[in-house]
Amino acid sequence: MSQFIAATGFGIVNAGIFALAAVGFTLQFSVTNVLNIGFGAIMSLAAFVAYDLNVVVGANIWLALAIAAVASGVLSVLINRGIIQPFLKRGTSFFGMVVITIALDLIVEYAVEAIWGPTFLHYNVAAGTPVTLGSLTFTHFQLVAIGISVVGMIGIHLLLKRTKLGKAMRATSCDARLSKVCGIRTSRIHDAGWFLSGTLAGVAGVILGLTLGTFSFTVGDQYLIVIIAATMLGGIGQAYGAMLGAVVIGLVTQWSSLVISGGYSEVVAFVILIAVLLVRPTGIISGVAADRNMAA
């Protein structure tokens, strides 16, 4: 039983990190209709920028996180303006865009390796005292990670449901042309979508680095596939679906390590994903996938 509780604790921490990244990934897809594989590389880049700020410059880790996150957001907007939009204007197909974001992923990820090298790094932070909640024990950073994730999810919820920008984002996601006709400046909404997703990628990347302890340049791409799995499990383009998918993937991968070797936890996550997609190709929450005719 105690093992089960410990696994649940780890599962919750992972779910929190996955949720931040998965919501960023999925929002960006729903608003801009680009499946951005480069997302993982942005996570890695943010983790390393925060490393330079934290270790080389000597900034507080939370300040480093904030700066790295905003920088990732700005970089994402620049990528959107400089590369993605020109290709979209030219009418490049959906798959052409996927190939381009894969290329971006390669460029950013390996530029990070070229600059920082392939070694494992760790932030300059004090470990802090472990906190015990009931029979669950968390490290200081795990608790902060969960906290940031919860605040982030509530923030996204309020943004989507209570603000004009959120409404415009949802409208653009539903029907970009119609939104334009209604006077929504969709190019700005696209920028906002890229900024938001880039920022979330940055936050998730730095927190991943913090909770893992040590990380290398592949950290983002290592987790990108799980994040995509969480996104698709929940139903792509659905912010709440991504949260749900992240919780399922986070918990199941940890629970499975109780029954079979931990080496199989990714296998379990992916087999669940394949099974769900085969039974219900649109994911658990189907809206966007069904609208865009992505599964028969």
Partner: peptide, 17 residues
């Protein structure tokens, strides 16, 4: 059953599994 991007992702995931 699957079309487009799902098919691509499921094949990627199979390679990963």
């Amino acid at each position: 059953r699957l079309r487009g991007d799902y098919e691509a992702v499921v094949m990627l995931v199979m390679a990963l599994v």
